[in-house]
Write a protein that binds this DNA or RNA. Structure first.
Length: 274
DNA sequence: CTCAGTACCTGGTTGC
DNA sequence: TGCAACCAGGTACTGA
């Protein structure tokens, strides 16, 4: 489901629902979601008694901060958080339940069970996998042209594969990579090391603009994404190529094509993106 | 080391 | 209608 703009929208909405509430118990119904501690009972014990202090985000990861610990949570394709009265019936795909001290429950729902949760001692999360593997967010000061061009020079992979690589820039996924490359006028199969510095700057700026606009719009809803208050995103109205195969390019009218790049469905305009 | 392929899951859609 | 194959906002692991 979510890329950076959707995770940011979840962060903002979830924050309002749980801040200052205390976890009184935890139920884990699908063990594989819990990656650290290794045993879900230890995970439960770490969380009981902890109060939600802040929710941050890096790339596509939520960083849920409590008194003494931080929980790093990735929604992967379909993960969702919601807060419900304890008496509300469970949905089919609810896998982790955090009981709160005001009679509500924070529930993690995930049809495909791909999501992950890691608990760390507060402050240690940033130096440990998975967060330690991430590059800068697109709008971070450290995502400079010098940095980006240098990384592009070092690989023979396609520009699409590079933009999907979270260790280079964090937060772009399949939708925003396709949109970024369209806006930059760069073909997704171009070899990264063959882009000019000027083209690298076009891609860098397009990534920043696309992500910032999408956050503004509350993310993109293609099939199932909703924020923690159950609302859909609006950025799908501004997509140029993702999911637009066979429709005319908004810039030149040429039909948008869909191909496979890096094993992912890839949408582009053969006229506008060379 | 770099990178392509595959595993992890379920459900909706497509095509015979 | 039935059913297999394919596809999906992602990442970690394997091994060439």
């Amino acid at each position: 489901m979510p890329e950076l703009p959707e995770v940011e929208t979840v962060r903002q909405t979830l924050r309002q629902l749980v801040l200052n509430k205390k976890v009184t118990d935890v139920t884990v119904l699908w063990e594989n979601i819990i990656k650290l501690p290794l045993e879900s009972e230890a995970f439960r014990q770490e969380l009981i008694g902890q109060t939600f202090k802040e929710i941050n985000r890096k790339g596509k990861f939520l960083i849920i901060e409590f008194d003494d610990i931080s929980m790093v949570s990735h929604l992967r394709m379909e993960g969702k958080y919601g807060v419900y009265p304890a008496e509300e019936p469970m949905k089919k795909h609810t896998h982790v339940i955090f009981q709160l001290d005001d009679g509500t429950e924070l529930r993690y729902n995930d049809v495909r069970k791909f999501g992950t949760m890691h608990v760390f001692k507060k402050g240690e999360e940033i130096n440990q996998k998975p967060l330690s593997l991430l590059g800068p967010d697109p709008f971070d000061d450290s995502f400079t042209l010098d940095y980006f061009y240098n990384r592009l020079q070092k690989t023979q992979r396609t520009i699409k594969a590079v933009l999907l690589d979270q260790s280079i820039v964090a937060g772009l996924g399949n939708i925003y990579v396709d949109e970024t490359l369209f806006r930059a006028g760069v073909h997704p199969e171009r070899k990264a090391n063959l882009l000019s510095r000027h083209q690298a700057e076009s891609v860098r700026q397009a990534a920043i603009d696309t992500i910032e606009e999408a956050i503004q719009q509350g993310g993109t809803t293609i099939r199932s994404y909703v924020n923690s208050q159950g609302q859909i995103g609006m950025f799908q109205q501004r997509l140029f190529v993702y999911g637009k195969e066979e429709e005319p390019c908004k810039s030149c009218g040429t039909p948008i094509e869909k191909i496979k790049v890096s094993n992912r469905g890839t949408h582009y305009c053969r006229h506008c993106q060379q």
